[in-house]
Design a protein around this nucleic acid. Structure first.
Lengths: 202, 202
DNA sequence: CAAAGTATTGGAATATCGTTCTAGAATCGT
DNA sequence: ACGATTCTAGAACGATATTCCAATACTTTG
């Protein structure tokens, strides 16, 4: 009765589909990209695609969740190494830029809001976000306690630190602003100034 | 040979369609909303809708451009009255919050990224953005000259000033953060600190 | 004021695309 | 090797964006 739930080839096939989907979505946007486009580029059949993901939105959703998970892991790895609050905050900005420059297609897709999440997808998204925030907050908590970071309403740290560089990078990704290389320090300064505590001379 | 290019009723009809479209798009998102939904709510025929906007994406695009124009005008009006750089910068943050709280549906749509711009639409978007930036920059220029504002790469002012509040408001609009009422000063401080010049004590 | 010309509207017909369905092939546990 | 199950394939279906052209309203001109 008990039987293997997935086959070795399955994961590979799923990855192929997601990779093809990223290319297609990036080229034209989620809505204009057709199932045929994806299916052909992935070298699989319609049935296979639907078997694994259920729907086109299912593909879009799975892709987004996979990418945000990858991105969060990257940022947390970077944050874990920080020795001071200032290191950590500047690391967020620098990490955001580095990942975006290294994977512009992926970041462009993460910025895209044109994904209609299913209830389950939405739940998973919220779960991932919550876990990420919790881990970030755990890392930052001690800096708040020792006064390196200001004590602010919880939901304001992320916008204050990442908001500016996020906005800038989005414009760069759509071709409306020059590369973020060169503005790292400026945005890191802004982030640090926004959340630094009283212990540093103001 | 010369003839009126539009009739008086035309503008009204277009506005009706755009208004109906905003309701439909806000309710379910751009993709799930059908032409029939819009056309029925606007009380017009399919032909009429296509005559004026060419496609569903054409409607979505025109709506977005109309709203961003309205928003930019509102911000510029507010900025024009500022007497000092600090007034201006804080005014941007406050204005952003006020407009969002007054027109959450419109702001939610401006934040939506699920609009596939046509080449012309993209060009117009870029043109509007460029003009807005230019006007903001013109207003800020004298403050830069007299040292109230720091001299920074042109494309960094907007992200530095509006980035954080933009990120926060987006989370609020999707139900992921509490109302922006109460965090005005925090975000205005951050904005001002990010761009203030050397003339103020640092 | 009449008539021609143009903008606008209506709605049926069409084409495209997401999704469903079912039969068969590949793979795994026993 | 055999049975069970996952996975693949592609034709058929249904929904919806778009096209098309005839009918109507307005506007200018003679």
């Amino acid at each position: 009765m008990t039987t293997a739930r997935t086959r070795p080839a399955t994961e590979a096939r799923k990855r192929e589909i997601l990779s093809a989907a990223l290319d297609c979505f990036d080229a034209t946007g989620v809505e204009p990209a057709t199932i045929q486009d994806i299916q052909r580029q992935a070298g699989c059949s319609v049935g296979s695609l639907y078997h694994h993901f259920g729907s086109k939105e299912g593909v879009a959703e799975a892709l987004w969740l996979a990418l945000i998970e990858e991105f969060n892991a990257y940022m947390l790895a970077r944050l874990g190494k920080a020795e001071s609050a200032e290191d950590a905050v500047r690391g967020v900005v620098q990490g955001y830029i580095n990942w975006s420059v290294r994977h512009p297609k992926r970041m462009r897709y993460l910025h895209a809001r044109d994904i209609e999440f299913s209830p389950e997808g939405r739940a998973r998204k919220r779960e991932l976000h919550g876990r990420y925030i919790a881990e970030v907050f755990a890392l930052f908590a001690r800096f708040v306690r020792d006064g390196q970071l200001a004590e602010l309403p919880p939901y304001t740290y992320v916008p204050l630190i990442s908001g500016p560089i996020e906005a800038y990078v989005r414009r760069w990704l759509t071709g409306d602003a020059p590369s973020p290389r060169g503005v790292e320090t400026l945005f890191a300064d802004a982030a640090w100034n926004a959340v630094k505590g009283a212990s540093t001379s103001r």
